[in-house]
Structure formats: C-alpha cells, structure tokens
Computed example of a mutant assay.
Amino acid sequence: MHDDSSENTLVAGQPQSHTDHAIAGAVSGFVTRFTCQPLDVIKIRFQLQVEPIAHHHVSKYQSIPQAFALIVKEEGISALWKGHVPAQLLSVVYGMGKFSSYNALSKLANEYTFHDRWQHMMHFVAGAGAGVFATILSFPFDTVRTRLVAQSSNHRVYQGILHCGMEILRTETLRTFFRGLSPTLLQIAPHSGLQFACYAFFVDVYRQYTNNSETTFGGSMLAGSAAGLVAKTVIYPLDLSRKRLQIQGFEHGRKGFGKFFRCNGLIDCLVVSAKTEGLRGLFKGLWASQLKAAATTALHFTAYEQALILLKSLR
C-alpha cells in the first residue's frame, strides 16, 4: 500500500489490470493456506472446545504443542491438513475477490479530493468493503471446511467436499451454508479494514525507519505480521462465535471432543460463552489464532505483492 495518488495499489508503480490483481490474490490465498493450514486446524479445535484450554485439566486440548502432538498421534499427520481442499477453494476465491475488489474500490476513492487527506481511512473503508464482498462469495466453502475439520476421524460423517455439501442439502437446508454469516460480516468488515489500514501504516513506519522509498520482502513480512496481530486481536470474539454457529446441528460428528456447545444466534453465542466459560472464554484459542494471523497476513500481502511483480515482469 503506497501513497501514490494516481494508482492506489498495494505495490508501488504497479498500475495493473483487475485480472492481474485477481490472479495475484488467488496465488496469495493458495500459498498462505497451504503453509498455515495446521495452525488453522488447531485454532478451530480450540474454538470449538467448551472445556478450558489448560494443563492439568480433563480437556482434550490443553496447549498448542500438546494439541499438535495429540492430533498427530490420534489421527495422523495428515489431520493437520484436514479440510485442506475446501480451505484452498475458500482461500483462492476469497483472495481473488478480496484483492481485486480492494483495487477497484481504491481506484474509485482516488477520484475524490478527500482521498489524500483521509488516506488511511480510505484504506480501511476499501479493505472493509473488499472483505465483505469476498466473504459472501466464499462463505459456503468456509462452512464445508469447518464441518470437515470439526468432525472426528474416528466418527466421520462426511467423506469429502462433495459429500459434505450434498449431505447438508439433504439433511439440512441451503441456508446452512450461510449459517454464521452475520457475525462473520460483522467481524470481517473491521478485520479486513484493519488489515489493510494497519499494513499501510506499518509499511509507512518501516520506510521512515529504514529511509527507503520501497518496501522489501522482509518489510512486507514484518508489516503484514503486525497488521495481522492487531486486526485479529480486536475482532476475535466474533471469530469464535462464527465457528461455534457453524457446527450447530452437527453434534453427532463431535463425539470424543467433549461437551457440545449449543447456541441460537450471535448474541446468544457470546452470552452463553461468557456465562459458561467466563470472559476469557471469548478469547479461547487466541494465542493460536494470533500466531496464525501474524503468519497468514504476512504471507497474504507478501505473496500478493510478489505475484503482481512477477506478472508485470512476464509482460
């Protein structure tokens, strides 16, 4: 993200087409998902566990290292990439929609005189709009991915993506694919906006500190990590609620994972979580999520920027 008033793209001097931004976004989503999928599996397992995440407790998962080791022991190392195919579809569609729509919204904002005065705010607004569009577009893949990750390998209900989708349509309704969409949109608008705005801010800080007009690969990674950490921490309770809403009606697939969490809507989910698990329960799995957010946001922006540079060089 740069201060180039003529072309508000993520890479300085890259006035590229919407197709380039869509392709770069898809590449970014693919690379990021493949690298960070194990952390996502751990995060989801933590979020869906009602019991405390603590040592010396009857809880199934007690810490990040213990959860990794237990999953590998009980389900094999491939379980760390459980639900990877729908997750990849989710990431590719989401990345494509997010970065292409951000580019389009940024170009629109450039046409107004207030853009230069409210530059970081425009990054936030464009990022929020891009996140909402990409989320609606990719949400069914997220629901399928969550169901596949949530089920026990010893009590499998779904055999794959297509089977999961067909079973949801057969036994539930089409609306099930979008269950949890409301809290997700409430979450994703500020989350995506904060990601873009914080990334732009930290890139500016990096340039001032290094006295360099360009952002290096390392600079992109550092700015992305910091942006991901800040954004994820702010919206985390909504992320937890989304995952818990997505498994409602899926109790039969959660055998062996402890007590099943039941709720009716976003507010009820937040209230029940806080009432039964304390306020700390709203941030259950935060460490794993922060680790994942720092890694994924850094990879997302860096891979996107590098893909744009590569696409330009090929022309």
Rank of each mutant, 00 (worst) to 15 (best):
L148A: 11
V85R: 05
L282F: 08
M166P: 12
Q248S: 13
N110G: 09
G131K: 01
C164K: 07
F301M: 09
S313P: 12
Q208W: 03
P38T: 04
I309T: 11
F34I: 13
L311N: 07
K60A: 01
H84M: 05
F177I: 09
E51H: 10
K255I: 10
L266D: 04
G224R: 06
L194I: 00
S313G: 15
L39R: 03
T113L: 08
Q49H: 04
H115V: 13
H115I: 02
G76C: 06
F141H: 10
A54E: 09
V272W: 04
S182C: 11
L240H: 14
F201V: 01
C263R: 02
V41R: 07
V132E: 03
E251H: 15
I235C: 15
G29F: 05
Q246S: 11
I309R: 05
A67I: 06
H252R: 15
A26T: 09
V234L: 05
L245R: 01
S273E: 15
I42K: 02
F141M: 15
G29N: 09
G193V: 00
A274Y: 13
E251P: 03
S91Y: 06
G218Y: 06
H163L: 08
D20W: 05
L181G: 01
L174P: 02
Q306R: 15
L311T: 02
A24V: 04
L286F: 11
S59I: 05
K60Q: 03
P190V: 06
T19V: 14
F99P: 00
T276M: 06
P237R: 08
A288Y: 11
G29A: 08
P52T: 02
W287N: 10
I267G: 03
N103E: 11
K243T: 13
K275M: 05
V58L: 14
G193F: 00
G219M: 05
D3Q: 08
G165T: 07
G131E: 11
Y61H: 08
T176N: 12
T184S: 05
P52L: 03
E305A: 03
G228H: 05
S289R: 05
G193Q: 01
G285T: 10
A24H: 11
S78E: 10
V93Q: 10
A24N: 09
K243S: 08
R175D: 11
T210S: 15
I267P: 06
L311H: 15
S5L: 15
R254L: 06
K275C: 08
N154Y: 02
A295N: 03
L240Q: 07
W81F: 07
F177E: 11
K107T: 04
P15Q: 09
A303Q: 04
K60E: 01
V11M: 06
V58D: 13
H300M: 10
P237I: 12
K292N: 10
A128W: 00
F34H: 02
E277D: 07
A189N: 15
R170D: 03
N110R: 14
G25P: 07
R45V: 00
V31A: 14
S289W: 04
I267K: 06
I188T: 04
P86A: 12
L48G: 06
D116Y: 14
E74Y: 11
T297Y: 04
I77T: 13
L10T: 02
G281M: 00
R315P: 13
K292T: 01
L222T: 05
P190N: 12
S153C: 04
D239S: 05
G193L: 00
Y102T: 01
T296A: 11
H123L: 00
R262C: 00
K98I: 04
P140Q: 07
E172G: 08
T135S: 15
F250L: 08
Y304W: 14
